Each structure stands twice: as C-alpha cells, then as structure tokens.
Computed example of a mutant assay.
Amino acid sequence: MGQQKLSIILVVVVAVTLFFFLQTTNSVPEKEQGIEAQLAATLSKIAGVGQVEVYLHAETIQNERSILSSYFEDSSNNPSYTGVLIVSEGADSMEIKRQLTDTVSRVLQLPAHRIVILPMEKGGSQ
C-alpha cells in the first residue's frame, strides 16, 4: 500500500512540474511578440516614420534554476531588454532616427547605444 501511494504522489509531482514548465516556457515569447507589435504600431503613428518593424533582444539568464523556483518568482516584472532593432520606412532621415532613438530609449529605459535604427527596404516588408 505504501509503494502505491508513493507512486501516485510521484506521478502527481511530475505532472504538476511539467504543467508549470510548459506554462512558463510558452508565455514569454507571446508576451515579447505582443510588446514588439504594440511598440511598432505606436512608433508608426509618429509623423514621417512610416511602416515599422521592431525586434527586442531580451536578456537571458543562464543559471541553473529549478522549474518550481522560476514559477514562484514574481512574474509580473517586465523582461529586461538589452537591445532593440527598429526598421522603419522613414529612417533615411536623421531627424526621424533621432526621434525614434529618443522615444524608444525613454520607453524601454535603454541607453541610445543599444538601439539600432535602420531604413526599411523600399516597398516595405515582404
């Protein structure tokens, strides 16, 4: 009887751990994509900027943590971004580049040297 209880408890612990692992690994990219899309939509409303695509580079922490410890951490904190790539139709203009750099620097609290602004290929994204 004791072996059966131990087996059931072990199965439940493995299932719960697997569930939490799947929840945490799937939610981060979706959140990043949402932030990228929201930032791109907002930046494209600035006069002269035109169509915009945004890529955020998030900091990845390469330390050993258990799955359960990452679950119990405060997940309400925003991820820490270490760089941004912005491709914009209006980035040919130095004034637009400056406006984009200033805006993104303030919104994401990143230094300007971590923000790359490039002009979009004529004809937009494919």
Rank of each mutant, 00 (worst) to 15 (best):
K5N: 10
L6G: 11
S7C: 04
I8W: 03
I8D: 09
L10V: 09
L10P: 02
V11P: 01
V14S: 04
A15C: 08
T17H: 01
T17K: 01
L22Y: 00
Q23L: 14
S27K: 11
V28M: 15
E30Q: 14
K31V: 05
E32Q: 13
E32N: 15
I35C: 02
E36R: 12
E36L: 10
L39M: 10
A40K: 09
A41L: 10
A41V: 06
T42A: 15
L43P: 00
K45N: 14
I46P: 05
A47V: 15
A47Y: 13
G48R: 08
E53V: 09
V54D: 00
Y55E: 12
T60Y: 10
Q62G: 08
E64H: 05
I67C: 02
I67K: 02
I67N: 04
S69M: 00
F72H: 03
E73N: 15
S76E: 08
N77S: 11
T82N: 08
I86H: 05
V87N: 06
V87M: 04
S88R: 04
G90R: 06
A91E: 02
D92W: 02
E95T: 12
R98S: 14
D102I: 10
T103W: 07
T103V: 06
T103G: 00
L108R: 04
P111D: 10
V116H: 10
I117Y: 11
G124D: 08
Q126C: 03
